[in-house]
Design a protein around this nucleic acid. Sequence first.
DNA 1: CGGACGACTTGGTCAAAGATCT
DNA 2: AGATCTTTGACCAAGTCGTCCG
Length: 919
Amino acid sequence: MVVEACSTHNLLDDMEDDDDQPLIFKRSSSASKQNLANSETKKLSSQKPDGQPARNSSDVRPVNGRSSSAQKGRIVHSTNLPPAKSPLSSPKASNSSARALPITSSRANPKPSTSTSDKKSSSSVKPPKPSIPAAKPSSNFEDSDDDKPLSTRLPGGSSKVNANGTSKEGDDFNSVQKPGVQEDEDSDDEKPLSSRFTSKSSLGESTIKSNESEDKKLLAGKLQQNGSALRHGPVNKSSSLSNKRPQGEVKSSNESSVKKPKLSSPTAVIIKKQATVKAEPKAEEDDDQIPLAHRAKKTVTSVSKPKAEEDDDDTLPISQRIKKSPTSVSKAPSVKKVSKVVSSLKKTNKKSKKVIKKSMYSKSSKVPPGSGEGQKWTTLVHNGVIFPPPYKPHGVKMLYKGQPVSLSPEQEEVATMFAVMLDTDYMSKPQFKENFFSDWKKILGKNHTIQNLEGCDFAPIYEWHQREKEKKKQMTTEEKKALKEEKLKQEEKYMWAIVDGVKEKVGNFRVEPPGLFRGRGEHPKMGKLKKRIRPRDITINIGKDAPLPECPIPGERWKEIRHDNTVTWLAFWNDPINPREFKYVFLAASSTLKGQSDKEKYEKARLLKDYIHGIRAAYTKDFASKDPMKKQVAVATYLIDKLALRAGNEKDDDEADTVGCCTLKVENVEPVPPNILKFDFLGKDSIRYQNEVEVESAVFKAIQQFRSGKDGSEDLFDKLDTSKLNAHLKELMPGLTAKVFRTYNASITLDDMLSKETKGGEVAEKVVVYQHANKEVAIICNHQRTVSKSHSAQMSRLNEKIEELKGFLEDLKTDLSRAKKGKPPLKNADGKPKRNLNPEALERKIAQTNAKIEKMERDKETKEDLKTVALGTSKINYLDPRITVAWCKRHEVPIEKIFNKSLLAKFAWAMDVDPGFRF
DNA sequence: CGGACGACTTGGTCAAAGATCT
DNA sequence: AGATCTTTGACCAAGTCGTCCG
């Protein structure tokens, strides 16, 4: 970001300076140490209740100290500025020697069950509140797989077919692993799946008998369930399946032993964590030592309390963190922010306003968890929004029944919107044309020459547009640059907002230009005219003391001005397509505000890790519930957990007909005995979800039951909707909702795969490991992309090149053998003589060519492999950046290899994470 | 308690920008 | 240097989920 660019308002001035300056890495020694110390202390104290000593913490510390010191001094970018070089890139921190400590020692938790009691009476198992760390129910089983990524759990699970019809294979990785197998690496952190499985299964049985506490029972249930889930291999057909382990394996005795401990008490949790810790360190090669310490520390922490307080401030509610020590934070920008935040916090207004209707604060005062009392900012200054330029008539006449037609500028504008879409496949959608014509007709007027779309020929306008595009393309670099600068100059003032004194980027300060609505899938409103938005449509939200943004269109004024500091939007207008909905102007993803909520999101997902066992046990138990709603909730939760399905809110008739978990129709899920479910439905954005999964038999039966007696188009879960589901989830864990499972599963999968699969080697190889993990997550989340139009052309070109190289290789070989005999090389295809090279040179060339061929083959495979998989979405929205950052630090991979500039800016909040961080 | 409302996150596409190849 | 391929970012649609209200 161009900080300098910003207009210099006085307000900005101070800040600007800072922004530009390189920041020091947060983890500067002192600060980081302090934090650590604090956190540890906290942890320790918290742990005490358990009776567990905080293990190794002492050992760890030294390590931390080192690492931190090593890091200190590095330059960090301000939040806004992407760092020229990321601190990560130079991992010297790694030298610290401390390697893995034997964290393994398990600590027993003394009082396991108390937590249970805490829980609400509600049937569901509630995990203890975060505040009561000891209580976590889930912890017992923890070491096992809960933490494991879905993929692991569902081995092979599923082969998905994307919309294109190609089938993807399930992951191959670890699902099959057996316990112990991976140990050498980081492995142990979480037990191998197999172990988990087994344990689960065994537990399940055992659990049944044990009555001691509900928790236990629940857990047992979960275990079973999980185990089964795991066991089931993917139904698939694909080779990948091979990985899945036979059920027999699952059962292996070893595992059972593992489990038991868990069952008994929360302690297990601790163990698990520790284990995790260990694993990490090992995983890497030498450099990673640093992480250990951190890890250890973390482990401890985590054990003691539910994520809430991790060692860093992560655990703390953001507000607290912020308050925490501005000093500690080395980054200049952050400091500023911090202070501001603090002030805002104190200031806090309650939400008294509520009652007032929209005029003032429409929103409720409620405080979102983790955020400061619902207040999002104290001062907010911005310049409003920028409008698209007015329409410039081109005067090109379209034809109607072969004759040129004169159109008014308004009519022509809409005709042009349609004309420029002539080469899209909306043209094959009757709904689109119908909606378009109906709206255009209103502008044409009843008696216009044009009476139907069939008689219209928009080609002249289309061609005009193509020519314009071409002209633009032909402009010289200078012209383009000038144009760009001109645009920047006009927009500059709108690009920034000052939030609590900190200059932040605004996300979408441009008002959407008029156009035809491009709904996805079979959207009933596609093709409708999205009318031009004017100032009178726009509501501005701004600080009370801030100057009102000047209305950029002379003679007009804003619809309304608000001063609502409980929301983050700067402006909104009603969506012209659906007037009941709004379009908001928010800050950019790189802003502190967004970063905070992003961090909270991941913290919540991490918290789920501590509860997941209990939750799985609970829903497994409810598969057999007599209460239909409970049973449906259980099965739905299972699907969301196992398949990362979206919640599935109800939709109106005037939206595309897509579904999520709660809105699955009978026809979307086909049970195939003995225990396979075939899913086929259109999800968000009308992206097809196709998957076959082996499920537990209780689930299979339940689905059959839910389907029985219903028509294909009826709801599978007729007693359920997302609010009921989420209400139930909230009883299991504070703040838990369906979407948290997606975040959790994505991030835990990444963390797990990275720790297991990262071996030594070059940076490039490690990057491949990362991409592989990223791809697995994308598959789990069903993030697809359409195959690019040029894909096949690109592939065949690659093939040609490979063939060409192979031919070249053959020639080289011939020349080599001739050269060895002292003969000159053969002539070229075109008859020209080649240079006479000595055998060594030829051999070198052959090796080079071979390498080139191999690389191209690899590229080709990757390309084919990823042609339908979109990696970006998960990286942006589901993968906790701290996992990536910590991994980069541990493995000396420059963060820039993984995150581009905007991602670096967006994840500025995660950059100073401890290298030992584990999700 | 259900639905409307409101705010915010997630998501795919496309064109521009950048990188690489020829 | 221009062509071609790849990456990035703008764009804006489409989800999720909390709250309010009747």
